[in-house]
Structure formats: structure tokens, C-alpha cells
Amino acid sequence: MKKSEKISFALLGLLAVGLMVVALRYDLALDHMLFSPQNPFAIIMEAFCFWPLYLPFALLGIVWANLYPGDVRRILGDLFVVLTFGALLFLSLPNLAKRGLTNGYSSPLGILLTFVLTLASIKLAGRWQKATLLRMEFLAKFGILFCILNNVIIHLMKGLWTRMRYDDMAKLGDFSSFTPWVRFGEVAGNTSFPSGHTAAACGILVLLLLPRLFAKLRGKELLLLVICYGYIALSGFSRLVIGRHYLSDTVAAATIITLLFLALTALPIFRKKLEETNRKADAIE
């Protein structure tokens, strides 16, 4: 990791600490001020912001469909792409209808879009050179591991904190069950802390690996960092607007998953596999 990246992550860490301190006093007040459950931006983000965490499954399928023709992995690749896009669309589209942003027709539209996305993505990747496919295979496998660990950590923490969501209290018109983020285990069965959608949006952090895989992208590390955390910030903000989370829920999720990303990329096995992938790809080019 370059010095500029280390400084950027250190500054992000300081910002996260500051926001968590602010949240101790203003968590509830911020949600009171921002709450707008029919906000189109927040509804759309709720429906789609978690996609980055699961797209590596589709990416692996796209790569295998083009890298291993005539192999069983070609069949598995096609299956991965269809199942990933199908699952994501059948989660996202009904949510838009439930929130009143669309008039239904989720199933036919989901089937059509699954078909279109599958064909388009596999055909597009067919233009990639073998070296590019090898590098993208590494990225996809890392993303899948990142996805699994992300879900395990976030869901374990939700079970410990059991914090009640803002919109659930808003429906009751009673906010007496609100708890600050430093207290946990007081309201059984609730899952506000930390934010799962924000954690899933952090799946976009795999883009930070691109400069380590592609020489043309070296020097773009800070730009990618801004893009990634801009997306994560928008996702987190949308969770406050729609009333599903508090500031501390979103900041904690982003911080935890950032630490997970940094820990995984610091492992010797990660560096070894990255170097092996680059060597194989460079030998082909």
C-alpha cells in the first residue's frame, strides 16, 4: 500500500471515530431530521446498494464462462451468472414495488433483466484477453471470500447489539426503546446495529485491488478510494433517510468492513496469490 493510501485510511479512521462520538449525542436527532421513507433516492439505494458485495459471484461466473470453454467450469460459470443476477433482481425489484416506487411486474421484469445481464456480461468479457481473465478471476475469488466474512461478522454483531430500528419506533410513535450504540443486548430480536446494507455497499472496496492487478491503473489509487467511499457514504446516508438505521450503525459497518478488507489484503497468503496471478498473467501478455 502506498504512503498516500495509508494516510487516507488513517484520516478515514479519525473521521469514523469523530462521527461515532457525534452519534452518541445526535443519533436519534439526525434520524428525526432526515426521516423520509418515501424518498425515491433512499428507496432506490435500499433496493440496489448491496449489489457490490455479491457481484463477485457473477464475475467469477463470467470469467469461467470465457476462460474455460469445454470445461465443467464453463457450465458452472453460466450457472453462477444466472443465479447471481436472478437472486439480486428478485430481491431488488419487489422492494421497489413494496415501497410504492413501481407498479409491480417484478417477476417478468426480473426474468428479462436476468437474461439480458447474463448474455451481455458474458459477451462483453469475451473481449478480454486471457491475462485479464486470470486477473479478474483472482479479484472475483477475493470478493467472494470478502462477502462471506462480511456477512458472518455483521450478522454476529447484529445478534449481540439487538438495537431497535428507527422506523419500527416511528410506526409505534414511541421512541423510548432507543438505545445509544455503546449499549447492547437490551432489546432482543432487533437488528439495527451495524447496518447490513452499508456493510454490503463496502463490497465496492474490491475495486481498490485493481491497481495491484493492472499496471494501467497504477496511480489511480486515490481516485478509486474517493469513488468507493463516496458510494459507501451515499449508501449509509440513504439508510438514515429511509429510517432503517442511525449514523452510528452506518459508520460502524463501514469501519468494521474496512478493517476486514485491510486485514485480508495484509495476509501473506493474499500477497502470495496476487504475485502468482500477476506472474501468470504477465507471462501470457
Rank of each mutant, 00 (worst) to 15 (best):
M1N: 09
K6Q: 08
L11Q: 07
L11W: 10
L11M: 08
L12C: 12
L15I: 10
L15Y: 11
L19N: 07
V21I: 15
V21E: 11
D31N: 12
S36P: 14
I43M: 05
M45W: 08
M45D: 01
L53Q: 09
Y54S: 05
P56D: 01
F57H: 00
A58Y: 02
L59E: 01
L59D: 03
G61N: 02
V63Q: 01
W64T: 03
G70T: 02
V72L: 06
R73P: 06
L76R: 12
G77C: 00
L79M: 08
F85C: 05
F85G: 06
L89F: 11
L91C: 09
S92Q: 04
A97K: 06
L101G: 00
G104I: 06
G104W: 08
S106G: 06
I111E: 06
V116W: 01
W128H: 04
K130I: 08
T132I: 05
R135S: 06
L139S: 03
A140W: 05
A140F: 01
I144G: 02
L149H: 08
N151Q: 15
I153C: 11
I154V: 14
I154C: 10
L156Y: 13
L156T: 13
M157Y: 14
G159W: 10
L160F: 15
T162D: 15
R163H: 15
Y166N: 06
D167C: 14
M169Y: 02
A170P: 10
A170G: 09
L172A: 14
F175L: 01
S176W: 13
T179M: 15
R183W: 07
F184L: 15
E186C: 12
E186D: 11
V187K: 07
G189F: 13
T191F: 14
A200P: 03
I204T: 04
I204G: 02
L207E: 05
L209T: 00
R212I: 02
R218A: 02
G219V: 01
K220H: 04
E221C: 01
V226W: 12
G230P: 07
Y231Q: 02
A233R: 02
A233T: 11
L240D: 04
V241I: 11
R244M: 11
R244Q: 12
H245Q: 04
H245T: 03
V251W: 12
V251Q: 08
A253V: 09
A253G: 03
T255R: 04
F261P: 04
L262Y: 08
F270Y: 08
K273R: 15
E275N: 12
N278S: 11
R279K: 15
K280Y: 13
D282G: 11
